[in-house]
Write a protein that binds this DNA or RNA. Structure first.
Lengths: 192, 192, 192, 192
DNA sequence: CATGAATGAGACTTCATTCAT
DNA sequence: TATGAATGAAGTCTCATTCAT
């Protein structure tokens, strides 16, 4: 196996778990607190014992998990050596994350959050991890000298789209089984 | 120039123009009819002379323009010969569409529309155009025999992500100037 | 024939005619000016060239026609001699009025007009004509000395209900054919 | 006393009580949810915890109470023997119902409900009870063989009109005191 | 600490009326 | 004069949040 298994605990508290599912299916604005309460099996008022507001729930769900996810990525990549290995590690980490909790992944990396713009500012994001990876790869001569953002678009776009296709069941197998192939395609496009 | 200029008329009526801008910035649910009316410079009631409801506005904006866009793409691609030429034509058409009206493009191809699911069913979409292109390219031996969806993810993901980067001003130059380079990267990844 | 033919001209202007039909079917509040304009084949604005407001239309429709109707009744009854004859004349006049324009009759005598209370105050009404008839009949010893309002309830209630039954097609024949029978029943109940 | 006392509990919940009063005075369309809320002493939103919509309130008010009322009538009449007794029972039941809650009675038997047509279809109605009574009376030879609907018009019209006169204070005494007299008049008109 | 009824601001929509053409 | 688009007040309903129990 290319990269090490990373320990993961999503362990979302029940309320957040319920909220996540709904946010992902109906959007944040499209989800009512009543929906969340019912899905979580608690009374509406109980939500406010844990979170100051619906937006805080949505924000926390986003922030906490994105931070954990990005930190995981950074850790995994720091253990891989060389542009190619790092790229492989990146792709398979992303795909593993997707499969471990598709809803959460969708919420973090796919869904738009017009409602949260504030709270998302300045967070380090899996995109940043990939961008760093590409810059470093260019510096070591592994990747083309083309504009970084273009390389980034190919790599991030490919990985991201794989997740979307999977989610809409246009890809039937677990993404983890497509990681190597996907890495190869991206590598082929990017290498010097 | 690789492909012919296609005539385009967005010419959105003022109300739709205003609505589009807001939908793109704040989402459909996040945009109020009052917002739209103010932005369009009319009274709230006036919206309803033209559209039966806010959702109908959002739906029409989507449906009409997506159909036109996809038809344009199909036409342009039918005039290009060979997988490589078609791929180039696809990328530059997409980028031209983006630059001609970034908000509209974002609304059609980037934004999620949890609110519209109904009206979007069954429409032919630029993604379908690309999928057809890739299948044909495989059939003629131009592209790898890898799983279609994986090739699709690389190609569509790259193009799509370029548009997003541009929109968030992470790419400064008009995308039309990056079309060739982007095509080359995708071609490199996909070719047999 | 018991009573003379009375000349009648409803000749409602087209707009009132259309409005009447709608008021009767959907109520005044339930009828929109757009409905009326469409039914009358004119533009909405045109309504206001003839009537200051929807309520004025409704009011005029009521007032003008009720006055004419009541005056007709008074005239017809003044020509009939004796309680029994007057009663017969009353019943057949009412029934003839119903059959000559069921919508208008319904509007005048059956429908409630919570919206018009003001304009209806103080108008002489077919009910008053009947009440006078009964008092006179008691004075001449033709009717029981029972409380006037009870006699009135029987007589007016019967006639009024016949019209409603006819309107809902629970009575198939023209009411004019039931006038004699109805008079007999009422006479039987009321006579001394 | 002619018929037995029937136990009655209107006990409308506060909101329905308030709504009823307003519906009766201003019509359903003429009553706003704000009116109802103010009259019931609650916030507007609170209405919707109990009823899905204003029309549902109006419908339930009608349906539930009409069913109860009609069932009461059927029960009372089944205990009275012979056409004359049944007629007396009918009249006094109606009058008792009126006096026990004039607003509710008005809402059920007098007001028009253009808005509710749907929900009223197929319900058994006090009119049906009376119609059955008259048919049975004819069958046993107690009533004239005249057209049923004409007899019905006299009987129902009289009773109904008594209630209206009472409501507009043209009758000062409780209707229960006029029941016998009214029965006699109707009986006189209808008997064979 | 949980509940869920109540609140009240504000969303969407309708419609009588006005007014530029 | 007739038209019908536009206005804007007002109506119905929703929902995040609060609070008495």
């Amino acid at each position: 196996m290319i990269i090490e298994e990373t320990k993961r605990k999503t362990l979302l508290p029940g309320i957040l778990k319920a909220a996540l599912k709904l946010f992902v299916r109906k959007g944040i604005d499209g989800t009512t607190t009543k929906d969340i309460a019912r899905a979580a099996g608690v009374a509406e008022g109980a939500l406010y014992r844990h979170y100051r507001s619906k937006d805080e729930m949505a924000g926390e769900l986003f922030t906490v998990n994105l931070e954990r996810f990005t930190a995981d990525l950074d850790r995994v990549l720091s253990e891989a050596k060389g542009a190619r290995r790092k790229l492989e590690a990146y792709v398979s980490s992303i795909f593993r994350e997707y499969e471990s909790d598709p809803d959460l992944f969708y919420y973090l990396l796919v869904a738009e959050h017009k409602e949260l713009t504030k709270q998302m500012k300045g967070l380090r994001h899996p995109g940043h991890v990939l961008e760093d990876l590409i810059r470093a790869g260019q510096a070591e001569g592994a990747f083309r000298r083309t504009d970084v953002m273009t390389l980034f678009a190919v790599a991030f776009g490919a990985v991201h789209r794989m997740c979307i296709l999977r989610r809409y069941e246009l890809i039937a197998r677990p993404l983890t089984e497509s990681a190597e192939e996907t890495s190869v395609l991206i590598w082929t496009a990017l290498r010097a």
